[in-house]
Every structure is written in C-alpha cells, then in structure tokens.
C-alpha cells in the first residue's frame, strides 16, 4: 500500500502573513437533494453535522459540512476517517438519488494566518473580505484558478483548491504575502 502524501508536503512561506499547505485532509463531496429528509439524516449519522444552510458551514468536533451549491456539500474531516464516513453515507443514502465521492486526494488545503491574512486574498479574489462572516464558505477564484475559502479561526483563512493547481496556488499566495506588499490601511 502506498503512503498517502499531500500535494506539497506541508510547505510554508513567511511573509506579512503565513501561508501553509495544511497536509492531508479528508474531504467528501456529497451531492443530492439537500431538502430530502434522508440527506440531513445521513449527514447527521455519518458526521454529527447538521445540514448547513445557504453558504453556511456546520461543525461537529473536527468534522465540518460546507454548503457548496443548492445540491452539493463538501465535508471536511480527519484524513484517516474519510473512507469509513464515505461508506456510512453510502449505506445511509442507499436508494436515494445522491452521490458520495471521497475527494481527499484530489484537493489541496492551505491556511493563511496572521492579522493581515485578508489582504493576501483580497489581492487575488473578487471578494469583499470586510463583509465575509465567519462560518461561511465562499467559492470564488484566486487569480486564475477556482478556490473555496472560509474563516477557520480568528486571523486565519483556510482555502481549498484542486490538487493539480496546488503549486500554482502556493506560489500565488506566497507572492501575494511578500513583505512590503501590504495593502494601504483603509
């Protein structure tokens, strides 16, 4: 059995904010009719998370459920648990029109930390960070690639992208965080 490896092996860069590739993280795409009672039941049973409302993130311990689209959730959980939670969801949703896919190895997760973390991303994304609340997932682009981001802690933004563009994303974030390139204070 091969050893699972994250896209950039936990690389980090120090600037006016810190950019870190966060290593292996479990991620499951769950698609289907979010209004169906079976969906909320399956989610609760498999992860403990409540069904999140529009653009919201619900949490239970280390598990997160993020609203990605009217028919799609992204579940974030510890890497070793992804396969077992996938199996639980598939069992709970048997017979339903739903899709469960373990995408843990198809994605990369980054953390941007520091009091000026917003500024790193404000240069790259068409997002009003002053108006981005906590516990909300925002799908957008960072320069030329798709991204999903949220405030994962005070002074920390987490960002997910496709693994195939992880190096691009890391270089992009590290360049944007270069010391001396802070945005002028508002």
């Amino acid at each position: 059995m091969s050893e699972p490896t994250s896209a950039l092996g936990g690389s980090s860069a120090e600037g006016f904010a810190r950019v870190t590739e966060a290593g292996l993280h479990g991620m499951i795409t769950l698609r289907g009719d979010l209004a169906a009672p079976a969906m909320a039941r399956a989610l609760k049973a498999a992860t403990g998370c409540a069904l999140p409302g529009q653009r919201a993130i619900s949490a239970h311990g280390a598990n997160l459920a993020a609203w990605m689209a009217p028919d799609e959730l992204l579940l974030l959980l510890p890497y070793p648990e992804a396969a077992a939670i996938c199996a639980k969801l598939e069992t709970a949703l048997a017979g339903e029109h739903a899709l469960v896919a373990n995408v843990s190895d198809a994605r990369a997760l980054f953390r941007i930390t520091g009091a000026k973390a917003d500024q790193v991303l404000a240069k790259l994304c068409p997002v009003d960070f002053a108006a981005l609340p906590a516990a909300e997932i925002r799908r957008t682009r960072a320069a030329q690639v798709a991204a999903a981001l949220w405030r994962s802690a005070p002074d920390e933004i987490s960002l997910i992208c496709f693994r195939s563009v992880a190096r691009y994303m890391f270089d992009l974030l590290a360049t944007s965080a270069r010391p001396g390139s802070e945005l002028a204070p508002a």
Partner: peptide, 12 residues
C-alpha cells in the same frame, strides 16, 4: 439567485 453571491463578472 442560487447562492446569493453578488458575483463579479470574472467569477462568471
């Protein structure tokens, strides 16, 4: 109208 985001043209 699906996710409620006021999306910039470059996101569309």
């Amino acid at each position: 109208p699906y996710c409620g985001i006021a999306a910039d043209e470059t996101e569309l």
